[in-house]
Simulated assay, not measured.
Amino acid sequence: MMNFNGELLNSEDLNLSSENRAFKYGDAIFETVKVMHKKVVFWEDHYFRLMASMRMLRMKIPLEFTLEFLEQEILKTVASCEDTNTYRVRLNVFRKDGGLYTPKTNKIDYTIEAHTSSYQTKKAYSLDVFKDFYNFSGLLSTVKTNNRMLNTLASIFADENDVDNCILLNEKKGVVEVTNGNIFIVKGNVIKTPALTEGCIKGITRNKVIEILSKNKDFTLEETSISPFEVQKADEVFITNAIIGVQPVTSYKKKTFTTELGAKIAGNLKVLQITGV
């Protein structure tokens, strides 16, 4: 089932016009959230990121778009799906039809779609670097817009080269993120992740992992610029997103990594997902 502006529809009954701005201009943003045991994981963080993104993109936020309203709309959509414990939910917000580059209105429509999720982390997980195109290191790159062409091309590259994921670079040839999440590298007792100024998405799981690491006195966390060479020299690498949580990386080019810290953080994150604290 699909939720369109609060109405539940069969997916095949959803009719979007040829003037849909998400389709024509990528004039849309989205949140991918995980629902476990009828609970939207880290929902407050997702909600405030969505509100900040809508304000930044000059979308008119409806009065009913409260934290509680959207949470209930997500759970209503999930309840219409096959009964299981874990769901992947996409909340898409886009400007109403009309206009060319200049929209006729800043008012919005939204869709919510939910699918059962049984994703498990992989024991063997490989990375390469995608160099064909760059991710610009501007503030707009930190927002989850529907313009994911770079991620799509990098994912095709990964598939063609038999690796699990690809590192995206910015115009300064610094590491930004991977196709579907943020990246952390470990060297000795220093853990680095690209700063938001490098152009990476303001990942919710990224922030949770930073919170976990900030409480561990054995490591120093740096949000900074990272070169692909540093990735190759790292002891450990892991990636994060809302659905997988933490995925340890086992290889990058000819380098192999340990996974001990990534596995430990994944366990800590699961506790946060369940308890919410």
Results as ranks from 00 to 15, higher is better:
140 L>R: 13
32 T>I: 07
44 E>Y: 11
235 D>V: 04
232 Q>W: 14
107 K>C: 10
208 K>N: 15
105 T>W: 08
15 N>T: 14
110 Y>R: 11
188 G>K: 13
52 A>D: 15
156 I>P: 00
148 R>F: 07
78 V>S: 02
276 G>A: 00
208 K>R: 14
242 A>G: 08
244 I>W: 02
242 A>P: 03
193 T>P: 06
211 E>M: 12
12 E>I: 11
162 D>L: 14
261 L>T: 00
184 F>G: 03
134 Y>T: 11
24 K>W: 04
269 L>Y: 01
257 F>M: 00
61 I>M: 08
200 C>Q: 04
243 I>P: 01
225 S>K: 10
267 G>A: 08
32 T>R: 07
270 K>W: 07
60 K>N: 12
34 K>R: 13
131 K>H: 12
195 A>M: 07
153 L>D: 07
155 S>I: 02
53 S>K: 02
97 D>T: 11
219 F>I: 02
105 T>K: 09
196 L>A: 11
51 M>Q: 11
221 L>I: 08
218 D>T: 09
103 P>E: 01
220 T>H: 12
227 S>M: 11
42 F>Q: 01
236 E>S: 06
67 L>A: 09
128 D>N: 15
181 G>S: 05
137 S>V: 02
2 M>S: 09
65 F>T: 05
216 N>I: 15
98 G>S: 12
130 F>Q: 06
184 F>D: 00
259 T>H: 02
240 T>F: 00
2 M>E: 12
71 E>Y: 07
61 I>Y: 09
123 K>E: 13
103 P>F: 08
241 N>L: 03
180 N>F: 10
143 V>W: 02
249 V>F: 05
145 T>K: 01
182 N>V: 05
158 A>Y: 03
246 V>M: 05
107 K>A: 14
100 L>Q: 13
30 F>W: 05
245 G>W: 03
195 A>E: 13
88 R>C: 11
37 H>Q: 13
215 K>P: 06
245 G>N: 01
86 T>D: 04
124 A>R: 13
55 R>L: 09
69 F>E: 01
69 F>R: 08
51 M>F: 08
131 K>N: 12
203 G>R: 03
182 N>L: 03
226 I>G: 03
36 M>W: 13
